[in-house]
């Protein structure tokens, strides 16, 4: 019994040191994550710090984040505006970010909801999962991320485990700690301008990409309906926007008409204005795009102006300043 007791004391001492170190490192890394100013993690941090209190909120995927510039809206409509667009994600988790936003910020008057063909088709993996690391203890974030193939049940409960294998991130967090100047924001009010051009590689990818169908899933549909009902109950004006997708990209989605009809159905049901730019002249010009689904910096600037004019024309945004075409 004595050898067993002695061995267990030794192991407990060792495990205690490991645990102490793990907990300390866990809190250090979480704290550093919450200081990040770039990437989607930076947007989460801005949201959690509060004080955004935007009048106009832009929601959606990377197409929202890179297509609609809140600064233009603020300038022309004299309304504060913030972009909640999330890279690589669909409505289900964008919705979670929106509710997290409401926990820390005032509800908006207007939501510009950018809808893609894939908005209601939840991806299975938790793309760019590191953005959630600092917020896994938030119930809304935890609930949303659990619906994806990303974190294990232990990541939510045990210290440090969620950082296992994230060596690039860990090094960059230490780097930011020792060299704070390197922690630079890459977005302005959530908007990311991408100064890139359509090149031959994009054509190659398009050539190899087969046409595909989109299937909205039940979780996303339920979240979408619930979101629309809630916005209506809170008297928040929701606007659907389908921003330009290049024609070559549109052709890849076999059932795009069905998907747009589904959005149209919701628009009618909830009396929501729907601005669809699928037939806009921009959609045939590669110079506005960096790939088939994303506008570049110039395309985004032009599109934002177009959108503002259309929103003003419909009386959704006020005509305070004349926009320059």
């Amino acid at each position: 019994m004595i050898p067993l007791k002695n061995s267990l004391i030794k192991v407990s001492l060792f495990a205690g040191i490991v645990l102490l170190f793990s907990v300390s490192l866990h809190y250090f890394l979480d704290a550093q994550m919450k200081q990040l100013r770039y990437d989607d993690a930076g947007v989460w941090n801005q949201i959690s710090q509060g004080g955004i209190d935007a009048d106009v909120l832009i929601m959606g995927s990377s197409r929202a984040a890179t297509h609609i510039d809140p600064a233009h809206i603020s300038e022309t409509a004299n309304k504060s505006c913030f972009n909640l667009g999330m890279m690589g994600h669909n409505f289900y988790i964008e919705n979670a970010r929106y509710y997290y936003y409401l926990q820390h910020n005032r509800a908006p008057q207007i939501i510009i909801l950018s809808l893609d063909y894939e908005s209601l088709q939840r991806r299975s993996d938790l793309f760019n999962h590191t953005q959630f690391l600092a917020y896994l203890n938030d119930p809304a974030v935890a609930q949303a991320t659990r619906a994806y193939n990303g974190f294990s049940k232990y990541d939510y409960a045990l210290p440090l485990l969620k950082y296992v294998g994230e060596r690039t991130l860990i090094f960059s967090l230490f780097n930011n700690y020792f060299f704070p100047a390197r922690n630079k924001p890459d977005r302005v009010n959530g908007f990311l301008a991408r100064d890139l051009k359509w090149n031959a590689d994009v054509d190659k990818v398009l050539d190899t990409l087969k046409a595909y169908s989109v299937s909205p899933d039940s979780l996303s549909l339920a979240a979408f309906e619930s979101f629309l009902k809630d916005a209506k109950a809170k008297n928040i004006k929701v606007v659907f926007v389908h921003s330009p997708t290049h024609l070559l990209g549109q052709q890849k989605v076999v059932n795009r008409k069905e998907i747009m009809a589904l959005y149209q159905k919701y628009a009618w049901q909830f009396s929501i204005p729907f601005f669809d730019y699928a037939t806009d002249s921009m959609c045939s010009q590669k110079s506005y795009f960096l790939n088939a689904t994303h506008l570049n910096k110039y395309g985004a600037a032009l599109f934002t102006r177009k959108l503002i004019v259309d929103l003003q024309r419909e009386g959704i945004l006020p005509w305070l300043v004349t926009t320059k075409e």
Binding site: F14, F21, V164, G165, R167, I170
Partner: peptide, 18 residues
């Protein structure tokens, strides 16, 4: 010896994959 163990555990933290 313990330093070696901590080092190995540290490497597990950095390199383990899901």
């Amino acid at each position: 010896r313990w330093l070696i163990y901590f080092l190995l555990l540290g490497m597990l933290l950095l390199f383990a994959q899901r």
